[in-house]
Design a protein around this nucleic acid. Structure first.
Lengths: 118, 118
DNA sequence: CGGTATCCGAGAGGATACTG
DNA sequence: CAGTATCCTCTCGGATACCG
């Protein structure tokens, strides 16, 4: 696999592929949401909420909205009362999964390697 | 590739492997620093500073200190005047490179796929 | 049920000035 | 040259309250 530099001199850092990717999956919860959807296929808003420890209702809404805007998840709304909304991964979203796996694996393997870890 | 869930129910999110990894390479500049060191081998503080657009002197110091504390880079100080300090990747730091490449590649390939991208 | 609106605190990172 | 010390701003995410 031949790579040019991903951080060529003078490149504005926020325009690198890395930072584009980070802007989509970075932050505290997005990766967890994507994972849940990988494993469960389709989930309602409340189902995600219950499975992610610590997230607030509002934050989950914001995260899902951003993920949808970035084309990583699909939001399917059923016009009924009470409302029902389902979320699932897009093809684009699924293409991120190997990367998430890599990062998880690396973290699991290397956590604790550093004596006085932060 | 067989994986268990990286986000098991009830897991506190900040203790997942993913978030451990993100805590090391997340943020605006760390990945750029790691990349530069991959390509150049050994660099002085000022050399890194000149190659990363937008970073402040102080922020670079903080980033390098954290990367060193996390065992990803080595700081080598020459006790002379004027001071000379060199930075290079550790083995642990090098093991992260494939992940950085993955994220760069994905970003380069998928940037612009979304119509009204943020 | 699945939101939005509003307010707020913590932390990342920037600007500037100073030191060995 | 390399690094602190302040101070400041901006974004992320949390808390609470209200709406269709």
């Amino acid at each position: 696999m031949e790579h040019g530099s991903c951080v060529p001199q003078g490149t504005e850092i926020t325009r690198t592929g890395f930072h584009y990717t980070l802007s989509l999956i970075g932050g505290k919860y997005k990766m967890a949401i994507l994972y849940l959807l990988t494993e469960c296929g389709v989930l309602r808003h409340n189902a995600i909420y219950r499975r992610i420890e610590g997230i607030s209702y509002k934050t989950l809404s914001v995260m899902l909205k951003e993920l949808a805007a970035d084309g990583l998840v699909v939001r399917k709304e059923y016009p009924q009362v009470p409302p029902k909304v389902e979320y699932m991964l897009t093809e684009r979203g699924r293409s991120l999964i190997p990367i998430l796996h890599n990062m998880c694996d690396w973290g699991e393997r290397h956590r604790g390697d550093v004596p006085a870890s932060r």
